[in-house]
Design a protein around this nucleic acid. Sequence first.
DNA 1: CCCAGCATGTAAGTGGTTACATGATTAA
DNA 2: TTAATCATGTAACCACTTACATGCTGGG
Lengths: 189, 189
Amino acid sequence: MLSTTEAAVLGMLTREEEMSGYDLHKHAMHTVAHFWAPAQSGIYALLPRLVEAGYLTRREVAQRGKPDKQLFRITTAGREALRDWLKTAPTREPERSPFLLKLFFGALLEPDEVIEQIERRRQDARDLITQLDRYEAAYRSGTAEFRERDFFPSLTRAWGYAYAEALLAWTDDAEQKIRARLGPRQGDD
Amino acid sequence: MLSTTEAAVLGMLTREEEMSGYDLHKHAMHTVAHFWAPAQSGIYALLPRLVEAGYLTRREVAQRGKPDKQLFRITTAGREALRDWLKTAPTREPERSPFLLKLFFGALLEPDEVIEQIERRRQDARDLITQLDRYEAAYRSGTAEFRERDFFPSLTRAWGYAYAEALLAWTDDAEQKIRARLGPRQGDD
DNA sequence: CCCAGCATGTAAGTGGTTACATGATTAA
DNA sequence: TTAATCATGTAACCACTTACATGCTGGG
């Protein structure tokens, strides 16, 4: 079974005909980065494996002025493997959050320090929104065909917005609760 | 700097005086599992490291009927290390979601298959809510002191609910959009 | 003149996971 | 009699990350 990053690479190659490792990384940063941001070196490491497995073909291209490069193209077997991966259930979302762990043990910090952490998280949400706005702008200014092709990606952006909004609302609420708890008992302990 | 799981272990030992590796794992499953669920073997692997570092002390306890066990207790140095970890910013939430990646490439699946994935995700959200309800019930039936002590954990549960609700709303919306797109163009391609 | 972009990779490390092995006791 | 609970660990693996090495070109 494919790893997530392998699937991401195959997936991008269903949308772009032919790409180099360099292209793939750049492309990922402009499309799936908000929920999957593979390291460049990781991509270079997995490409030969996918070629070996028969999921990609490789083509060498000489260049002048720039380093030579290798362009990859997905095969029918690659599409099959990707489809299989896309269909599988387990997926087991990690839901891992060091941030929530820090908050869970918030009693060990000064209230200000906890609020600082929450503040940071709020900023993360804002950053996510601006990032999504950039993608969204590209989407709205695209042709009808582009928008059609971008239907599923747009659903992932919609989740990004919902997530960020929920985060903003929750941070407000959490901060307010912490302050409320603090107020009525100043110097109480 | 501590790893997240190490911090979780130290954190639990600030709330429970003394625990075995077995206890720590069970405890984690009942408290932080919805955002951090370490494997049992991982806990056993890191305990000696924390002892070595001077963050925990170990006490051997002979038992009858059950295997002997080792109980761990956090040291002052351990509390210090934990506090340092709690304060640090980076944390860089992963935000990694294989599910969103599958949706992103949803055009490669049959609409039904995509909806199946979304259905599963909705079920995840429902499961999370029932899990949180269990914790919440324990919280509400606890003493005033317990609730006080549980203040920060309750904030993490609040986020759990907000997250799950957002997920439910989004899944409804996404599914509806997919169906709407499907309806008016039956046999169109 | 310097930096960003193009382009590829290796080496080492990190922080986990699954699977497995062992074995007594007690409750259903 | 069967399963769950208590209890500890090892070995192998996994997927990914950071840091590093190299070097040319074109634009500001």
